[in-house]
């Protein structure tokens, strides 16, 4: 068990893989500043064991942070059959892009689908908003 688990608010290190979601895409076309797009984008799908370690319930907000940014999103359970502790999934969106490194090794291709962050409970803090 890593040290983070013993802190008052447990924090764990997570690798995020982003993906496309048709319902989220549709919501973006209809209104990219709307609630539906936010609700379908500002989420992270975690392994059930990671949720437990973080001491957060499904639907609670969590803070995702690294040296590039900090966002608050809703935690969900992934529901995948295979366990994936330490790996989590997020739809690709302005929220996930807040955390993507600018380090590209000069290739011009950021690691959109491979984001390392620390996760901790947001203790009720609201989801990050992108207002125009």
């Amino acid at each position: 068990m890593d040290f983070g688990s013993f802190l008052a608010a447990p924090e764990i290190k997570i690798r995020i893989v982003t993906y496309r979601d048709i319902f989220q895409d549709k919501a973006m076309i209809e209104n990219r500043f709307g609630e539906e797009y936010r609700d379908r984008s500002a989420i992270i799908k975690l392994d059930a064991a990671d949720l437990k370690q973080l001491n957060v319930k499904k639907g609670d907000t969590v803070i995702l942070s690294n040296s590039f940014g900090r966002i608050v999103v809703k935690a969900e359970e992934s529901g995948y059959d295979t366990p994936h502790r330490g790996l989590a999934y997020m739809p690709n969106s302005p929220w996930s892009n807040m955390l993507v490194s600018d380090e590209t090794g000069g290739t011009g291709v950021p690691k959109f689908k491979d984001i390392s962050v620390t996760v901790t409970s947001a203790k009720g803090e609201k989801v990050t908003e992108f207002k125009p």
């Binding site: 940014g69 302005p94 993507v100 950021p110």
Partner: peptide, 12 residues
């Protein structure tokens, strides 16, 4: 295109 949304904010 909407690079402020679709690129890493650290770049855009």
């Amino acid at each position: 295109s909407d690079p402020l949304s679709s690129l890493p904010r650290s770049v855009s």
